Computed example of a mutant assay.
Amino acid sequence: MNGLKTALLMTLLTILFLFIGKMIGGQNGMIIALIIALGMNFFSYWFSDKIVLSMYGAKEVTEAEAPNLYNIVRRVATRAGIPMPKVYIMQNPTPNAFATGRNPEHAAVAVTTGILQLLDSEELEGVIAHEIAHISNRDILIGTIAATFAAAIMFLADMARWAMIFGGSRHDDEEGGNPFSAVAAIVAMIIAPLAATLIQMAISRSREYLADETGAKYCGKPLALASALKKIAYGNEMMPMDAKPATAHMFIMSPLSGSSILHLFSTHPPIEKRIERLQAMAAGRL
């Protein structure tokens, strides 16, 4: 169901890009915006693992250094049918974790020291299974594609705004202008970036639900993951992480969830709904 929802949202984002592109950028503007957005997000996609791991001071560990964690990652990766990801630990008391890497062959799982201290082995396995699910579901790629279209739409809106500032008034004076098309362009410039952002966030939330569901199947213990999420939510509330907004979507729980961000603009679903779905899954109702 969440896979279908993602496909529908991606289709909607593509249609929005094509419609807005044709309206306010024309074919040439649309191509330029897409090329710029592709260039920016290709770099992010290719080097995101190194950038994010370095940003949070994550250090790679060996099996000898973290045997329990390493064995859990290997066990879940085997069940998921993917190569063994690299394992990293962040020296941070806030309980959290994330996965990164452009594909299953170049993947990494990172956890904080806080989550290692807080969770028992079954709960930790649930968290690792969630992160492995992101890798096997290729969520980094899907997120990059969504970000590319959203960025292209924002570029188009900026292009139209600058065109109106520097050329719109003169063109209207010379040609008589078209009030309706001018109003439509203004509305598009305002609404399109907002709509693109909302769709991008909805895609992110659908992938979190899917990672919960897939991860619960990998570890075979939906209630262990539900228990872990409850503990992580409490830990994040008591001891918030100093995280960058641009990377918040990567964590199993948004480090920004304690702020007053509206649900529609959140990268993660409400924790209560995630726990309810896992409980329903354990009871065979999902």
Rank of each mutant, 00 (worst) to 15 (best):
Leu229Gln: 10
Ala196Pro: 10
Tyr209His: 12
Ile82Trp: 02
Ala110Val: 04
Gly114Ile: 05
Asp120Thr: 11
Lys230Ile: 05
Thr11Val: 14
Asn68Arg: 14
Leu118Lys: 15
Leu225Pro: 10
Pro222Val: 15
Leu38Gly: 14
Ala211Arg: 05
Lys231Cys: 05
Gln91Trp: 00
Gly168Glu: 05
Thr247Gly: 04
Ala224Pro: 07
Leu198Glu: 10
Ile199Val: 15
Pro95Asp: 02
Met30Ile: 10
Ser260Thr: 01
Gly220Lys: 06
Gln91Tyr: 07
Lys86Thr: 01
Ala110Asn: 12
Arg170Gly: 00
Leu225Ile: 15
Ala185His: 09
Pro255Leu: 11
Gly101Ile: 03
Gly29Ala: 07
Gly143Ile: 03
Glu276Val: 11
Thr6Cys: 03
Arg79Ala: 15
Tyr218Ala: 05
Tyr45Asn: 01
Ile232Asn: 12
Arg102Gln: 10
Ala108Glu: 04
Asn68Leu: 15
Lys231Met: 12
His263Glu: 15
Pro245Asp: 05
Glu237Val: 02
Leu225Trp: 08
Ile32Lys: 09
Ala7Gly: 13
Leu38Lys: 11
Met241Cys: 12
Pro83Lys: 06
Val187Ala: 13
Met84Trp: 14
Ser169Val: 08
Ile31Ser: 00
Ala226Tyr: 14
Gly258Leu: 00
Ala97Tyr: 00
Ala147Ser: 11
Arg170Asn: 10
Ala280Glu: 14
Tyr218Leu: 15
Gln200Cys: 06
Ser204Thr: 01
Leu53Tyr: 09
Asp212Ser: 11
Val73Asn: 02
Glu63Gly: 10
Leu12Thr: 15
Ser136Phe: 00
Met164Val: 02
Ala248Arg: 05
Ser44Gly: 10
Gly258Glu: 04
Ser44His: 08
Glu125Gln: 14
Thr148Asp: 03
Val87Cys: 06
Ile271Gly: 03
Ile31Lys: 09
Thr144Gly: 00
Asn71Arg: 14
Val87Gln: 04
Leu119Asn: 06
Ala107Glu: 07
Ala77Phe: 08
Met1Asn: 07
Ala192Val: 02
Cys219Gln: 08
Arg285Ser: 09
Ala196Gly: 07
His134Glu: 07
Val127Met: 00
Ala97Asn: 13
Ala192Asn: 13
Asn68Ala: 12
Met239His: 08
Ala108Asn: 11
Met253Tyr: 03
Ala129Ile: 03
Leu278Pro: 13
Val127Cys: 04
Ala146Gln: 04
Ser181Phe: 11
Leu223Asn: 13
Ala151Asp: 12
Asn2Glu: 14
Ile252Met: 01
Ile89Ser: 08
Leu286Lys: 13
Pro85Val: 08
Asp139Met: 02
Val73Trp: 06
Gln200Ile: 05
Glu237Ile: 02
Leu38Gln: 07
Tyr56Pro: 15
